[in-house]
């Protein structure tokens, strides 16, 4: 249970960064922390103490062997989610650079042409 709670705490730290920070780059870092907290959580769900790599070496005993594996599905999921995260980071950094070109600052208090 403790790792789950720690992941939630990490997630909340990221959320705090997004909400409280005034710098575009720090907001982006907050978003990345949130995403990594979720990835960590996913990998911990599939973890088993002393579990082996999920590769069947002896097809006749596949079921007995599988009992000693870590769960491979979350690993497949986080590979996908890391790639999605990469895309997200790329697009948001590109947006930050464009904003810096236009406004000459990373401070969100000075980037407010649109109101609520």
């Amino acid at each position: 249970m403790t790792p789950y709670i720690l992941c939630t705490v990490l997630f909340m730290i990221g959320l705090y960064g997004v909400i409280a920070k005034k710098n575009l780059v720090k907001i982006v870092i907050g978003l990345i922390i949130m995403e990594y907290a979720v990835n960590l959580m996913l990998i911990l769900i599939g973890y088993r103490k002393g579990g082996g790599a999920p590769i069947v070496t002896d097809p006749a005993n596949a079921v007995r062997e599988a009992a000693g594996f870590v769960d491979p599905l979350p690993q497949a999921l986080i590979v996908t989610s890391i790639v999605i995260g990469l895309g997200f980071t790329a697009i948001i950094i590109a947006m930050c650079l464009r904003l810096y070109e236009k406004y000459g600052t990373f401070d969100i208090l000075q980037i407010r042409r649109l109101k609520g």
Binding site: L15, L31, E35, V38, I92, M95, L99, K102, I111, R113
Partner: peptide, 20 residues
């Protein structure tokens, strides 16, 4: 750009919640 950044941040938070 400003609108899109706002959308990206809130959309990113939403996606993280969904993945969680």
């Amino acid at each position: 750009l400003e609108a899109s950044f706002k959308y990206l941040v809130l959309g990113g938070i939403g996606s993280s919640f969904i993945l969680f």
